Simulated scan of single mutants.
Amino acid sequence: MVAKFEVVERNELKQKPDQDNLSFGIHFTDYMFTMDYSEELGWHNKKIVPYEDIPMSPASQVLHYGQAVFEGLKAYKTAAGAQLFRPNENFKRMNKSCERLEMPQLDVEEAVQALKQLISIEQDWIPTGEGQSLYIRPIMYANEPYLGVRPATSYKFLIILTPVGAYYGKGHLTPIKIFVEDEYVRAVRGGVGFAKAAGNYAASLIAQSRAEKLGYNQVLWLDGVEQSYIEEVGSMNIFFVFGNKLVTPQLNGSILPGITRKSILQLAAHLGYEVEERRIHIDEVVSAAKDGSLTEVFGAGTAVVISPVGEIKYKDEVVTIGSGNTGEVTQKLYDAYTSIQNGTSEDPFRWCLSV
C-alpha cells in the first residue's frame, strides 16, 4: 500500500523529451518529493510538489561546510507496470552517509513509500527504449543559514527524477579506456570515501579532466596511502575477470559499497562464477593483462550498469584487456542483470519492487 503524501498540482505539465535522443541528467519530470527537517519538528512538511528551483540563503551551511549526500537508483517500465530496483538498499546506504556527516536519518520505509507515490504519478516519464530508465536522485543538504563549523540544525530532503538513455553516448557495452591516477587520491580510510558525499565527487573532477585530455574516458583510482592498490574507476566499482573468477577490491572504508557491486557479486555466484573480494595491486593488473590471465575488466554502477574496459594506461605502459572488446562474462552478467531490472526474466533474489 502506497502512503499518501500531499500533492501540489502543477498548472501545466511539461513536454516530454524525445525518447530516441535522451541524454543523461538533462531533463527533469513534472514533480519532486520534498520534506524539511528541524531539531524541533524532526522530518515534516512532506509533500510532492512541482519540480522547481529552491530558494536558498547565501549563508546556507551546505554552501560553506559541505553537508550534502545523495543517492542514485532507477525505475523501469515493465509489462506489468513500473518497478524499482532495490530502493531500500539505497536509503539504508544514504543513512550511513548521513551518519558519517552528522546529518539526520531517514525512515527507510517512509522514504520508499514517498518514492513509490512519486513514481506512480510520473510513470509516463519512464522511457521504454532498450537500456533506458527513469533515473532517481534523492539528495539531502544542510540549509540552516549560519556561519560556523558545526552540524546544521535544519535540512532539506528531495527526490528528483530524470529520464535517461545510455550513460555513455556510444552505448553501455562499448569498451572504455581508463587512466590510472597516481598523483591525486580519491579517499583514505577513516575519511568519507564510503559515503555518497557531494564533496567526494568535486574532489575527483581534476583527475577526470586530466584523463580526458589524455584521451581516456575514466580515472582508475588507487588507494590513498600506498597508491598501489585498486579502489574504484570513476564513480563506479571495478571488477576483474580471471577465467571463471570474478575479483573486486574489498571494502575498506574508502571504497563506496555500491548497490550494483553487491548485486553483481550475488548474481555472479548464482550464475556459477567464483567471486572474491580482496586487495588488488596495480602491478598485478598490468602483469595479468600482459600474460593474458586477466581476461576482462568492467566498471559497475547505477548510472552505467556495467561498463567494459578495453584499455588501461598506467605510467608509461598501456595494456589491452583481452581482445579489447566486451568479454563473454561481462556480456552475460549485463544481460542477466538488466533482464531482472526490466522485468523480462525471473527475479530470484526479490530485488525488484512493483509500484
Rank of each mutant, 00 (worst) to 15 (best):
Ala80Met: 12
Ala80Lys: 13
Ala80His: 09
Gly81Thr: 08
Ala82Gln: 04
Ala82His: 05
Leu84Asp: 02
Phe85Val: 03
Arg86Thr: 07
Pro87Cys: 07
Asn88Ile: 12
Glu89Met: 12
Asn90His: 13
Lys92Phe: 09
Ser97Gln: 05
Ser97Met: 07
Ser97Ile: 00
Leu101Tyr: 05
Leu101Met: 14
Leu101Asp: 08
Met103Asn: 01
Pro104Asp: 06
Gln105Lys: 14
Leu106Val: 01
Leu106Trp: 01
Leu106Lys: 01
Val108Phe: 10
Ala111Thr: 00
Gln113Cys: 11
Leu115Ser: 02
Leu115Cys: 08
Lys116Trp: 03
Ile119Thr: 01
Ser120Ala: 12
Ser120Thr: 10
Ile121Gln: 03
Glu122Gln: 08
Glu122Gly: 02
Gln123Tyr: 09
Asp124Tyr: 04
Asp124Thr: 08
Asp124Cys: 07
Asp124Ala: 10
Asp124His: 13
Trp125Met: 07
Trp125His: 06
Trp125Tyr: 10
Ile126Asp: 00
Pro127Asp: 05
Thr128Asn: 09
Gly129Cys: 12
Gly129Ser: 09
Gly131Met: 06
Gln132Phe: 06
Leu134Asn: 00
Tyr135Ile: 01
Ile136Gly: 00
Ile136Glu: 00
Arg137Cys: 12
Arg137Thr: 08
Pro138Phe: 03
Tyr141Val: 12
Ala142Ile: 05
Ala142Asn: 01
Asn143Ser: 13
Glu144Val: 03
Glu144Gly: 02
Tyr146Ile: 15
Tyr146Val: 07
Gly148Met: 12
Gly148Tyr: 05
Val149Phe: 15
Arg150Tyr: 07
Arg150Pro: 02
Thr153Asn: 13
Ser154Asn: 10
Tyr155Glu: 03
Lys156Ala: 06
Lys156Ser: 15
Lys156Glu: 04
Phe157Asp: 00
Phe157Gln: 00
Phe157Met: 08
Leu158Asp: 02
Ile159Gln: 00
Ile160Arg: 00
Leu161Phe: 05
Leu161Gly: 01
Leu161Pro: 02
Pro163Ala: 10
Pro163Lys: 06
Val164His: 02
Gly165Glu: 02
Gly165Lys: 07
Tyr168Val: 05
Tyr168Glu: 09
Lys170Thr: 10
Lys170Ser: 14
His172Pro: 09
Leu173Pro: 04
Leu173Tyr: 11
Thr174Pro: 06
Thr174Arg: 09
Thr174Cys: 11
Ile176Thr: 11
Ile176Ser: 07
Ile178Pro: 05
Ile178Gly: 05
Phe179Tyr: 12
Glu181Tyr: 11
Val185Ile: 14
Arg186Gly: 06
Ala187Thr: 13
Ala187Cys: 15
Val188Ile: 13
Arg189Pro: 11
Gly190Asn: 15
Lys196Gly: 11
Lys196His: 14
Ala197Gly: 09
Ala198Asp: 08
Ala198Leu: 10
Gly199Asp: 15
Asn200His: 15
Asn200Arg: 13
Asn200Gly: 14
Asn200Val: 13
Tyr201Ile: 14
Ala203Gln: 13
Ser204Trp: 03
Ser204Lys: 02
Leu205Ser: 07
Ala207Asn: 13
Ala207His: 06
Ser209Met: 11
Ser209Gln: 14
Arg210Gln: 11
Arg210Ile: 11
Ala211Thr: 08
Ala211Ser: 09
Glu212Trp: 15
Tyr216Arg: 12
